[in-house]
Amino acid sequence: MVQTTMARERLFALREQIAKLEGHAAPALVAQARAEALKACLDAEETDAPVGAQDYTPVPDRLALRIPALDQALEGGLPLQAISEIRAESHRDAGAASGLALALSACLRARHASGNPAEGPQASPRRAGQPLVLWISDRFCSREDGRPYGIGLEGFGLPSAALIEARPRRLEEALFAAEAALQSGLFCATILEIAGNPKGFGLTESRRLSLRAKAAGRPLLLLRLSGAEEAGSTALRLQVAAAPAQARRLPDGTPLAGSLGNPVFRVTLEKSRLPAPLTFLLEWNPHACQFLPVASADDAALARPAHSGAVPAASGHRPAAPPRQAGRISHG
């Protein structure tokens, strides 16, 4: 099911041929130009002061991520009535992938709570009480990567009472729960965690869930941990990997050396309307409940000292001792 490089090359070649016949510009070149423009846009936006200041038109069934270039690439934002897949290449990226899924859920929650009537009837809060998020966990992933941790989620922009965790024993139970949750229309986001590419979750099941999501007008975030690209009925697929966090900012705006700031995700648009994959860095600000673009080649942020503690001064009278090793022992 994975689109091989060869096949992709042939597809592009065919497209170009068609374009030539029809007298348009070659799509690959257009796509490349668009991707470069987007990247430049994303990189440039980091320095812009108010992100919300640019005006963009909200699209009805999309969750705008409030980064105009990205929203434009996603045709208005995250689709609200479909499956969006968040894929991690390996279990090591589980933290980042879960983080992105939870961050998107927090955005969906905020949108649901605000209930902006301009954004369509789906946005209005249908009932009293706080909007809920359902996390359908996978047994294997729970053992391998841990379970969602309430207090951590609180600091991540999602109150722990707003997250219901389902613990199915088998995949069929998970799919049933996902379907029931979508159908009930109770949850502003449903996260379905899947380990790898199980046989029980194929085209049929994904199509079924996608139709459910469409009928109920509720988004499903498919969190695939340690799985390969797979053809399915998902409207959007993001591949997520961890990326180094930036330093925390002091009140005057200067970065605090040796601190770990907000989480940063390396997101690749794998399946979208864009003709070519696009990779960019996103920072999640839990307090503002907002994504911010990060300049990808920010080498200055990466070049930080490993240890926050003061480095002891080298002793003058000991010629050969390397100063970085002082005060450490090796064990293990």
Partner: peptide, 12 residues
Amino acid sequence: RFGDHFLLVGTH
């Protein structure tokens, strides 16, 4: 369908 302990909520 699945028992009481299928859907859980963390409380502090």
